[in-house]
Write a protein that binds this DNA or RNA. Sequence first.
DNA 1: TAATTTTGACGTATATTTGCGTCAAACTTA
DNA 2: TAAGTTTGACGCAAATATACGTCAAAATTA
Lengths: 110, 110
Amino acid sequence: MVQAKTELFDSKLRDKANLFKALSHPARLQILQFLSHSKKCITGDISEDLPLGRTTVNQHLKELKDIGLIQGHIEGVKTKYCLNPEKINELKSLITEFIEDLKLNNYKCS
Amino acid sequence: MVQAKTELFDSKLRDKANLFKALSHPARLQILQFLSHSKKCITGDISEDLPLGRTTVNQHLKELKDIGLIQGHIEGVKTKYCLNPEKINELKSLITEFIEDLKLNNYKCS
DNA sequence: TAATTTTGACGTATATTTGCGTCAAACTTA
DNA sequence: TAAGTTTGACGCAAATATACGTCAAAATTA
């Protein structure tokens, strides 16, 4: 009876935690940055940009795709990935909402 | 030769990933919310607010404390935790910086 | 002083993440 | 058609995270 306790939490909280989890590895952050700066968004180019093996990078790509932050388009043998602007904006809203919710105005631990 | 690859990434990226990791569990998000909304910030009260055992909550508190998002003050037997406003603001800045960096303006995957 | 309360350190078991090798499919190119 | 590319699925091993029981220390209360 270990784990699987996350379902006991509020679903909104779980959604936020899952988004943060997607951002909790430097490889995934670098992939997101790479996709936003580079015009090239082919899988092979991405893995060359990271200090990890191709299959490992592929796995990180899959995670980002599963949560919706990036999209993949198949073109022949190659697959092109790109950011999903809608989801990125949603992420931005959720994060901002969460941070703002931690209202620190005149916060004091007595 | 598995893992410990995170050190191959840029330190700024690692810092951000670590902050996101601290936020990647609903229990830790709920703790932060609890601390920001409640006046009571005693360890026991916090664990009663969560659907987890006391020692587990304690462990999550330790993680948040280790990364600096919360602080602990010992008062007799009891320990009072509170948000660390400076670190929360730093978190806010880092997150905002990261999101803004993913400039989506006229973004298009060709 | 003795019992109770409150806490964090420690150990342990299970679950998940991370990293990568191998492989077959599908498409290109020679 | 044959050889070479590119990709993602699959499986494995090691590292981490998650959840909790037990315990002893320190302070409070009876």
